[in-house]
Design a protein around this nucleic acid. Structure first.
Lengths: 197, 197
DNA sequence: GTCTATACACAGATAGAC
DNA sequence: GTCTATCTGTGTATAGAC
């Protein structure tokens, strides 16, 4: 029987996600998290076995829906160029809108636990990565699919990963933050390259 | 007067760098670091004011020389295409060879301290970033220099940031780890794009 | 210059009252 | 379902012996 629906699992995850996203697993304590939820640490342990499980649920919840959406886009029955463009626009928008998603993606890449990496890869990323690889193959034989998929993802991601540093750079303008501007730049560069005439 | 030269500052930094690189600032304790050096925590506090200073020195030392080398390459008196290619080869090789450099670069991007970000940006990254921006401008007017510089860096970096996850992906081959292969792929993609005929 | 010993705050986690 | 109280380990950091 639920005594206080405000503090059930989804509510806790909502409150806790931004903290993990900003400071990482080792950057926050159960006390910090409890404070953010508005309860005591003991209450957290009623709902989640330990800190690890809480973190895993946060990451899972944030990624699951996004990746499903993305995979749907990638397997649509469109011509390759169109599919690539749709994906880039979706990816840029998702990263721009959901900062927690973007940050957690960054933290997850630095994780050292082989089990967590394995789980995340096979359960979450694999399907999308393969879809991007397949898309890449439909362009030209000259590019290795694995390397091409990596390049595409990195090209998009880094515009957000580097934000804190780039903000301090000379030549920086407000328009560089707009999702549409970034998406258009990436698409053009990826399709035409630097030396197109 | 130096009693034990084995444990002076450079020696400590050497021993401590891989730990910070692998686990991040919050992932290691002064006890861990002292053990890696082969001394007690108290000895560490004789050489460094606190953990913050130790970390700052590690990051600074690892980045300083690399960035100087890179900036030299970027300001050489060569034609743009050649300069870009040289830079990419250098960058890929540096990331491939020095895993600590690569990992610290990743950790630094997740730092939340405005002071540390500011210091690192102006003292370390700015010069190189501007050089890449300038190089980008010599290609075509159609690409925004700031966005283009970001794209080039991200294109290279992500091949290394994503390594742990990509290792578990189907379609992965040993050649994808070779610096030359990665550099050639990135250069080709960047210059010609996906739709070149 | 490095040690032993230790202070003291804070970490994750649990027991048991309500 | 959430609390108070608390255990135990580990965190950063220092004092003072050698």
């Amino acid at each position: 029987m639920v005594k206080n629906t405000r503090n059930s699992r989804p509510f806790i995850l909502d409150r806790v996600t931004p903290l993990f996203a900003r400071l990482g697993y080792n950057g926050v304590s159960m006390r910090d998290l409890a404070t953010a939820v508005g309860v005591t640490p003991a209450a957290l342990y009623y709902h989640f076995k330990n800190k690890d499980e809480l973190y895993a649920e946060v990451v899972n919840r944030v990624f699951k829906k996004k990746i499903t959406d993305a995979t749907a886009i990638m397997t649509e029955d469109e011509e390759p160029v169109k599919r690539l463009e749709t994906f880039i626009v979706w990816f840029v928008r998702a990263l721009n809108k959901d900062k927690d998603f973007q940050k957690l993606l960054q933290w997850v890449m630095l994780d050292n636990d082989p089990k967590r990496i394995q789980a995340l890869t096979t359960n979450t990323f694999q399907e999308l990565f393969c879809a991007i690889q397949n898309l890449g193959e439909s362009f030209k034989k000259q590019y290795d699919p694995h390397l091409l998929a990596t390049s595409i993802i990195g090209l998009v991601l880094y515009h957000f990963e580097s934000l804190a540093v780039r903000k301090k750079m000379p030549g920086r303008r407000a328009q560089h933050d707009k999702a549409e501007t970034i998406a258009r730049h990436i698409t053009a560069l990826l399709e035409n390259g630097l030396l197109a005439h």
